[in-house]
């Protein structure tokens, strides 16, 4: 209704455009690779009309991989949007504040102790992510919760969890055999069976988060104002962080410790759709994150063909400098008096 006045043309078309981008990148991801395929071949393979080598490649290698990219990208980006908003900290992201590492540790543990229970992995990852965010939050509130403190606490917590992952892998070298590149994050050799349970966890969490988007808008006004408007701010903050943990955990459970999508994607889409509406921001970052990770994965497997990089490496190459740029901008902002 009148609300549309607020959104300019740019924000109105941004979400469909991001959706189109995600679809396009997914198609490209199905076509490109060691054996390039035409869109026609891909479609007939998807429709089940073929059974040749091309169909095998599409159905058992590229489709799970593409779905994994879309899902992990969307989940991590949505988690990043929630975390940055709820903590009021533009430097925060699932990989920065220890959520990913926590999820990774529990995934590794679960895979080591109950190798047959693939479907339990996203739930284990969720618990680990919850542990990570809880720990960082506790440290943050103890020490006054400045933006930098939170990031530093995240570094320390991530370090501990990473050591835990290494320890698990030392005792159970085969625990993460199904994963190529768990430590940097990768989606090569994914099987649909591992993506599916994570998909349901992420989908549920995303829709719950979207249903709380109106509350999230009010929460972003600051705790005082939010509570004076009748919002149970503290409870809502915990619920939203738990949903972010579920989202990030589901991605980690099949793709490993993918960094930086959760940091980059929210910042990128914020410029496109503004920050007026958390619902719009969540949609945009989920679609944008899906597209971003898929594009990165396409790059990872075509740039140095026949060699493949894990997608996490490409992401870190992009994300590291981006994070530094954010840090520098923060510093400047603080000097001007409104960090």
């Amino acid at each position: 209704m009148k609300d549309l006045r607020i959104s300019s043309t740019r924000t109105k078309y941004a979400i469909p455009a991001l959706g189109a981008l995600a679809v396009l990148s997914a198609l490209l991801s199905l076509c490109l690779g060691a054996v390039p395929l035409g869109p026609g071949e891909v479609f007939s393979a998807l429709a089940g009309r073929e059974s040749g080598a091309a169909a095998q490649i599409v159905l058992y290698a590229r489709l799970p991989r593409t779905c994994g990219c879309l899902l992990a990208g969307a989940a991590l980006a949505a988690a990043g949007t929630i975390i940055q908003g709820v903590l009021g900290n533009p430097l925060a992201a699932p990989n920065v504040i220890g959520v990913n590492a926590g999820a990774g540790l529990c995934t590794a543990l679960c895979a080591a102790l109950w190798p047959a229970r693939t479907a339990a992995l996203p739930f284990a990852a969720f618990l680990g992510a919850l542990g990570g965010v809880g720990l960082v939050l506790a440290i943050g509130t103890r020490t006054g919760a400045s933006r930098m403190t939170l990031v530093l606490a995240g570094v320390a917590v991530s370090g501990m969890f990473s050591a835990g992952i290494d320890a698990v892998l030392t005792f159970f070298p085969d625990a993460l055999n199904g994963y190529t590149d768990f430590r940097v994050g990768g989606v090569a050799n994914l099987a649909m069976g591992r993506v599916a349970p994570a998909f349901w966890v992420a989908l549920t969490a995303l829709f719950l988060a979207l249903s709380l988007a109106g509350e999230m808008d009010v929460l972003l006004l600051g705790e005082e104002t939010a509570r004076s408007l009748g919002l149970p701010a503290r409870r809502l903050r915990l619920v939203l962080l738990a949903l972010a943990a579920a989202l990030a955990g589901s991605a980690v459970s099949f793709a490993g410790l993918l960094g930086f999508v959760g940091l980059i994607a929210p910042h990128m889409v914020r410029r496109l759709v503004g920050e007026d509406s958390s619902a719009r921001l969540l949609w945009a970052s989920a679609l944008g994150g899906a597209a971003l990770l898929t594009v990165c994965d396409i790059l990872a497997r075509t740039l140095f063909a026949p060699y493949e990089l894990p997608v996490g490496v490409v992401l870190s190459l992009l994300g590291g400098p981006f994070f530094l740029w954010l840090l520098l901008r923060q510093r400047r902002g603080r000097r001007r008096g409104h960090a």
């Binding site: 005082e224 004076s228 503004g274």
Partner: peptide
Amino acid sequence: PQSRTAPNITVRR
């Protein structure tokens, strides 16, 4: 409240 945040939203919002 006395201290107010300035989130990046429009006044109408």
